[in-house]
Amino acid sequence: MIVDQLRELCARLLSEGTAQVVIGYGQAAPGKPAYPVFIRRAEDADQLVWNDQCMTNLAATLKRREVKALGKPAVIVKGCDERALIMLAKESQIVRANIYVIGVECNGAGRPAMAKCASCDVHVPRWTDTVIRETESQAAAVRTTPSSARYADLEAFMRKTPEARLAFWRAEFGRCVKCYACRQVCPLCYCERCIADKNRPCVIDTSATPKGNFAWHITRAFHLAARCAGCDECARACPAHIDLRLLNLALAAAAEDHFGWRAGMDPEAEPPAGAYSLKDKEDFIG
């Protein structure tokens, strides 16, 4: 069982001193959503769980000051979480060598499985220190990988008229209460002062008005363009159930179309927005 291997590894890492804290999943009761736990003593390793409720992207915890204060972390990642980890390393937010990464094979999280899982093509994390895999029979039973269907939902949406799309977003954003949960759970929203909190000048209206909500969601999406690793934590965290996944998909599709780029897929590749090259396309200049 994966969970046994996880607990054993966790205890070993802590007792050997390879890591000071192991960031993994805990659960109040079977069937309930798992939450992050921070194991600091080898004897607490049996708090760890592993099942289809382990949806949280634990990479997001690494940006937090209180987590950094715990010392060298070992973190459990699924394939999708690992993409965020790679982006964090690209953006100098973590030093890969200072983190022990435990990869776990995942063939779908959530019940029913989250939307992203249907077209997942990173079931097994690749740039980890250790990978724990399921047995062949278990893996074959759950895995579905039509990765060509990555943008199926977006394509269906884009077939609507522009008016219908605008009406859709009006309704979606109309429900936003500006709680910023989407920002707080995002592994890549790590700015110390978010642009939404800047008030001289005030770029984004702070109140939850249609104007302020549009400004916030469009800015959030733009700031994550070619960076969003597609973990969909924002959509899962949103109390108003705004379809943020669709917005993220649109920008991911644009990055893939124009720059052949998928965030966090290749730790060697240079991100399109953060690299200056004389070969940069200039066809947008009249």
Binding site: Y190, E192, P271, A275
Partner: peptide
């Protein structure tokens, strides 16, 4: 420097 998150996107993007 107080608000810089040190993502260094500017470092890589500066011509």
């Amino acid at each position: 420097e107080q608000t810089c998150a040190a993502c260094y996107t500017c470092v890589r993007g500066c011509p």
